[in-house]
């Protein structure tokens, strides 16, 4: 009797050990898939980063001779050695300023309205689909639109204002979509808490919705702006000049009335166009200038994205839901 019991216990133990071994084999097989996927993912990441790094370092090496302060303070010139990007970066800066001042208020207001105020029906669905689609429209189409609307229709000419408005239109969908996403991330419980103490819609928007979504909104804005910075096609379409040896009138002056808007109607060029212009020249010396310009555009873009990440981190740090 006792013996029998012992034997059956022993058999049970053996089968348990066998089972355990099978379970371990199974886990090992499953984990192998983990490793395979992680390696594929890592490979994809490294490839993408390497491409970017190669591109960037290539531009840096090619353009190295031009990395000196003169490059930033000289106008373009027929002699490559003397040519600089002063008019291009000032132009880019001013165009970006117009883009920022138009796209951000309009985009944030539109996003807020769609999320907080608009009734949810087929019309708002239609608008939503269209806004998302606009983000995918090729930029040259915006250029054609701007040529017809701003340059000829509104007679704004081939000016900084036209370029800024065009790029503003281009990034408007990005700003709207990121505003809506940021607003949607705010939990309903926080909104209800604000309404429950008797706040009006505008008080909720002003004191809560905008405050807690500003990190996400700023991120979207900066990503949109860095896209606008590199856009070439629509700017060429509206007819930006490629060789500019003057600066637009300064927006701020030391004499009254201190602020003027003449610069808005001034001709201009921007960094990617300056680069494009130099690239199309046969003289090799200009290729160096183009490379240096390209490196600067990438560097500024990276910096802007870095700021976006930092901002998001800083603002999100105080918010936990």
């Amino acid at each position: 009797m006792e013996n029998q019991n012992l034997t059956s216990t022993a058999t049970a133990n053996t089968s348990l050990m066998q089972n355990l071994q099978e379970v371990r084999d199974m886990i090992r097989r499953h984990k192998r898939k983990d490793i395979i996927f992680a390696s594929v993912g890592l490979l994809a990441l490294v490839l993408a980063l390497l491409t970017l790094l190669t591109l960037f370092s290539d531009l840096v090496i090619d353009g190295y001779p031009k990395f000196n302060p003169d490059f930033l303070t000289e106008f373009p010139s027929r002699r490559a050695a003397h040519a600089g990007i002063l008019s291009a970066w000032v132009g880019s800066l001013l165009v970006m300023l117009v883009t920022f001042l138009t796209a951000v208020p309009m985009g944030v207001a539109a996003g807020l309205y769609l999320e907080e105020y608009a009734p949810k029906n087929w019309l708002s669905d239609l608008i939503e689909i269209n806004v998302s689609n606009l983000a995918g429209v090729p930029s040259i189409v915006y250029g054609l639109l701007a040529l017809g609307l701003f340059v000829y229709g509104l007679d704004l000419g081939q000016s900084i204002l036209t370029a800024g408005l065009t790029l503003g239109l281009l990034i408007l969908p990005i700003v709207i979509v990121s505003t809506r996403e940021a607003i949607r991330a705010i939990p309903a419980s926080i909104r209800e808490a604000a309404y429950a103490v008797g706040a009006t819609k505008w008080q909720v928007v002003k004191d809560h919705v905008l405050k807690y979504s500003q990190g996400g909104i700023m991120t979207g804005v900066i990503i949109g702006m860095s896209r606008a910075l590199g856009e070439t096609a629509p700017i060429i379409t509206i007819g930006a000049l490629t060789f500019i040896a003057f600066l637009p009138p300064a927006p701020i002056s030391t004499t009254a009335p201190f602020i003027n808007f003449e610069w808005l109607s001034s001709g201009f060029t921007v960094l990617p166009i300056q680069m494009f212009n130099w690239l199309s020249r046969p003289d090799h010396a200009f290729q160096v200038n183009a490379a240096a310009t390209g490196a600067i555009i990438i560097l500024v873009t990276l910096l802007m994205n870095g700021v976006a990440i930092w901002l998001r981190y800083k603002i999100r740090k105080n918010i936990k839901w």
């Binding site: 419980s189 209800e192 808490a193 008797g198 706040a199 809560h208 807690y212 918010i319």
Partner: peptide, 19 residues
């Protein structure tokens, strides 16, 4: 409803302080 909420306040299921 805003007038009503000024007279009748509410405490929710999960603590929901503002950030």
């Amino acid at each position: 409803p805003i007038e009503v909420r000024m007279r009748i306040s509410m405490v929710f299921q999960k603590p929901n302080p503002f950030p």
